[in-house]
Design a protein around this nucleic acid. Structure first.
Length: 886
RNA sequence: GGGGGAUUAGCUCAUCUGGUAGAGCGCAAGCAUGGCAUGUUUGAGGUGAUCGGUUCGAGUCCGAUAUCCUCCA
């Protein structure tokens, strides 16, 4: 990809990236749109999605009709992350100049408001009037229709475009390019793309740009897609018209900036130049815009640092599962590149966080707010992986040494390096190559595929189709006020996971709280016409509340009595309210940098993860516990209100990362001056119900993240009682000493001293014993033979004695025996020269001539062997037997 | 969720198929040198993660638990 770095300028004006972004938002504000903030890049409550991968994600429920939108016209810039999919393989990013993991998607939406006419007119106006992109460089595509689907050409869109652009610039596209679907079912419709031809005039004169649209030319690129949702795809694959029509658009920000700034690479725009310059300074290498490995490394770093930083800022820490593992993989890929191609052996990425945070301070302020934290997390991850690489290299060197003759590394070895020791395959190839080794790539791939198949089989989730009984759009949650209700099933399906069959039920209304915000889902009973089935768990799927049951009732239609396990709910509520009190106390004692990083609330305890850089000291813990208990004794009433989000924030509510909120939020207040939180969970009515709050543990979960576990109510009381009981027993055992700790310390040091002394004495005894044993040595055929029964405590002492004697007597055959609590122990040591010269074999003698005599077994090496057995009365015979053999 | 691996001296790690637990660094002391860098010698330091099993004998084999690493989903 030797780039002819583009110096031609498409436009008279030059706009910086922030200006381009702002112009977009201002333009749609002027068209009556409400500007909303980007949703978090990390997705919760949607099992089909780990990360936000398109601008429309946060509006999915509007299209599906599960929720009514607050505004009919909305625009924003959305942080998106894509690491897999047809056109987005992580391993491709950085190789070319335009693929990214994280990117910004500019979008405007109409929810049942304006449609094709305005969408088309405005997109044209923005691109040509505001951005001043020359009209003769633009092409648009329109859906050509599809006979199989019985869909006509999108004449509407075509005719609206005709009002703006010459007809020879309106191209027809097939279903693959110009018909957009959210999934296998659901809202969908034709779309219209806008493409820009960025080639120099000379090239444009030679080849018509229209021929290069959707033809993978790096200079003729799609920048904007306008989707017109007008159909609903049903399960039988047929389409029905939607009652309300929507507009969903997406314009890749990085691409737009590249076009506007006249660059041939996204990485040459001011979106990336800041981090690239910093990387140059830190590594001492210069970015040369070529396809050399070194330049790929620059692009990989510039891209990946964005993805990692924003995801961590949105609350997702690197980990070894799920979304956290994706982050870890991206980070490690960046490390791999600077390690291999920039000669950088020390952590680097974390140094780029401040640069990035400043760059996005006004668009995505969440990064600047947590820059220190994000930096620390990345630093620890980098260090960790560099250590892994280090030990992997040593292992690889061992493998190469072992295969020095073949000069190849086989597939299983390469896979083991990767799989077990986390050492990347491409690094194995690189280092092997440097040493003149080849690597069996096929074998590696086979092993990798085997592992993938194994994993897939283990997690295979067989989800049946929903059986819809009733078209009620969404479940009404009534569990804040009621613990039971009469309702009916609206739909259900069978699922199969790990060979276990389960059913999922959705009710018209439900008192069951679905797992969310750390609080576990409710359990309880559903009674159908006298037949009860147990609800084992309740979970959310977007806005759907799904009840898990092990079996279906015989008749599923008709009235259902739904009742939750009240006891469990009550205990869970105690712990949830306690979590709020704890959160506020933590901020009071440790500082306002404390932010929730995770939470678990169930009936038996609560767990709270939060950002904090040091171990919470015992004094701080005591202070926090005191504050919480004080608030409990004050018996503060818990107030719960539903408010517009802005009002809630004015009250001082702590917005939590990674939570998706509607426009009306639920606010939980325990003293407006103390704790105000946005929270969908269930709570008690006054803090006094908690009774008592006790910490059970404080620990670290990741760099800069601490974890506190605590109990409340009865659980707290029994926790304290158990501890007191133990203390009482310890005291009683020690005869109730005045100073308990001092007594134990004395005990321990006394014990250590005694043990030491005893060891010395035993050593001494053995020394004396071996000295006296020397007298019993008798010469037999030039061999110094010793055969003696000794009085020792264990078999090990026999070895020890032999070892002592071996140093003072040569030409020896040392046979020591002992009766150790009724059992026979024998050790036989023969000097090396006798083994060599006379062919004596201690192990053989022991096995063949001694073991049977003492009714036991034994073995060892030629120069030393031992045996033990049940018959201690035959020791003298053993001596004569061995003696006879010399 | 499924696989693989690790846990041995203060730290980093050895110990081929079960048979007397070791090295390097660090620590302490001695010696050498005018002193230092350093060199050299000696020494201290181990419930071999925990619990159970097989065996005459387990750091080593088997099972469980805990913690950590790692790959895949």
């Amino acid at each position: 990809m030797t780039q002819n770095y583009n110096t031609y300028q498409l436009f008279q004006i030059f706009m910086t990236a922030p200006e381009i972004r702002q112009q977009f938002l201002d333009f749609f504000t002027s068209k009556g749109h409400h500007i909303v903030p980007s949703a978090p890049i990390v997705v919760k409550n949607d099992p089909t999605l780990l990360f936000t991968n398109a601008g429309m994600n946060q509006f999915k429920d509007y299209f599906l009709g599960n929720r009514a939108p607050a505004w009919k016209r909305v625009a924003d810039t959305q942080k998106c992350l894509r690491v897999s999919g047809k056109h987005n393989d992580l391993e491709e990013v950085g190789i070319d100049t335009y693929h990214h993991t994280m990117f910004e998607m500019l979008g405007n939406w109409s929810f049942g408001d304006y449609f094709k006419k305005d969408a088309i007119a405005w997109s044209w106006e923005l691109l040509t009037d505001i951005y001043k992109i020359p009209k003769d460089r633009l092409y648009v595509t329109v859906f050509e229709g599809d006979a199989n689907e019985n869909l006509p050409k999108d004449e509407e869109a075509y005719n609206f475009w005709k009002q703006h652009i010459a007809e020879d610039r309106i191209l027809l596209g097939n279903k693959k390019d110009n018909f957009w679907e959210m999934g296998d079912t659901g809202p969908c419709g034709p779309c219209s793309e806008i493409h820009v031809d960025c080639r120099p005039d000379t090239e444009r004169a030679q080849v018509d740009g229209a021929k290069l649209v959707n033809a993978d030319d790096p200079q003729v690129i799609e920048i904007w897609n306008n989707v017109f949702m007008q159909f609903n795809r049903l399960k039988d694959k047929s389409l029905e018209p939607l009652p309300a029509q929507h507009v969903d658009t997406g314009m890749g920000f990085e691409r737009l900036v590249r076009v506007m700034q006249g660059k041939s690479s996204n990485y040459d725009t001011d979106v990336f130049s800041g981090t690239i310059h910093s990387t140059e300074k830190l590594t001492g290498h210069l970015y040369g815009r070529t396809d050399s490995k070194q330049d790929v490394a620059f692009r990989v770093i510039a891209d990946h640092i964005r993805a990692i930083s924003f995801t961590i800022a949105d609350g997702q820490l690197p980990s070894n599962t799920g979304a956290g593992y994706v982050i870890r993989r991206i980070l490690r890929r960046a490390v791999r590149y600077y390690f291999s191609f920039l000669g950088q052996k020390k952590p680097l990425l974390h140094e780029l966080v401040p640069v990035l945070a400043e760059q996005f301070a006004t668009v995505f302020p969440e990064l600047l707010q947590q820059a220190d934290f994000v930096k620390k997390v990345i630093f620890e991850e980098e260090n960790n992986f560099l250590r892994t690489l280090d030990s992997g290299i040593r292992r690889l060197e061992d493998i190469m040494k072992a295969n020095a003759a073949k000069k190849t590394i086989d597939g299983p070895s390469a896979f083991e390096l990767n799989d077990t020791y986390g050492f990347p395959f491409d690094l194995t190839q690189l280092i092997a190559g440097e040493n003149g080794f080849s690597v069996d790539e096929e074998g590696f791939k086979v092993a990798l595929k085997e592992q993938k198949d194994r994993s897939r089989a283990a997690t295979e989730l067989d989800m049946g189709d929903w059986t819809v009984l009733d078209d009620t759009p969404a479940t009404k949650f009534i569990g804040y006020d009621l613990f039971g209700t009469e309702t009916h099933v609206t739909k259900y399906r069978k699922i199969k996971a790990k060979g276990k069959e389960q059913y999922q039920l959705v009710l018209a209304q439900t008192p069951f709280y679905a797992e969310s915000g750390g609080q576990v889902g409710d359990t309880g009973l559903l009674t159908f016409n006298g037949e009860s089935v147990t609800v084992t768990d309740t979970k959310k799927e977007n806005d759907l509340i799904v009840h898990f049951v092990d079996k279906l009732p015989t008749t599923i239609t008709g009235t259902v009595i739904a009742v939750i396990d009240r006891d469990k709910r009550q205990h869970t509520a105690l712990n949830h309210s306690a979590t709020h009190l704890l959160h506020a106390a933590l901020r009071q004692v440790l500082g306002t940098h404390v932010a929730q990083k995770g939470s678990l609330v169930n009936a038996s305890y609560l767990r709270f993860d939060f950002s904090h850089f040091a171990k919470v000291t015992d004094e701080e813990l005591a202070k926090i516990e005191d504050i919480v208990n004080e608030k409990i004794r004050a018996n503060i009433p818990v107030m719960i209100r539903e408010l517009p989000k802005e009002e809630a924030m004015k009250l001082g509510a702590m917005a939590l990362f990674g939570e998706k909120y509607g426009d009306v939020v639920r606010v939980v207040v325990m003293d407006p001056a103390y704790s105000v939180e946005l929270c969908g969970g269930t709570h008690i009515t006054a803090t006094g119900e908690l009774g008592l709050f006790k910490f059970t543990s404080e620990s670290a979960v990741a760099a800069g993240v601490r974890r506190i576990e605590a109990v409340t109510g009865n659980n707290a009381l029994s926790f304290v009682n158990d501890e007191l009981q133990q203390l009482k027993e310890v005291k009683a055992t020690l005869k109730n000493p005045k100073e308990l700790v001092k007594t134990i310390e004395t005990l321990l040091s006394d014990k250590a001293a005694l043990t030491k002394q005893l060891e010395l004495i035993e050593k001494d005894i053995l020394k004396q014993l071996s000295a006296s044993l020397k007298e019993y040595i008798e010469p037999i055929n030039g061999i110094n033979f010793l055969g003696k029964i000794v009085d020792v405590r264990n078999a090990d002492a026999l070895k020890q004695l032999s070892a002592n004697l071996k140093n003072v007597v040569d030409n020896h055959v040392l046979l020591l025996l002992a009766n150790i609590s009724g059992k026979a122990s024998v050790s036989l040591m023969i000097s090396d020269n006798l083994v060599a010269e006379k062919g004596l074999d201690a192990a053989k003698i022991i096995k063949e001539h001694v073991a049977s005599l003492i009714k036991g077994g034994g073995g060892g090496q030629k120069s030393f062997a031992s045996a033990s057995g049940q018959e201690a009365g035959q020791l003298e015979q053993v001596i004569s037997q061995v003696k006879a053999m010399l």
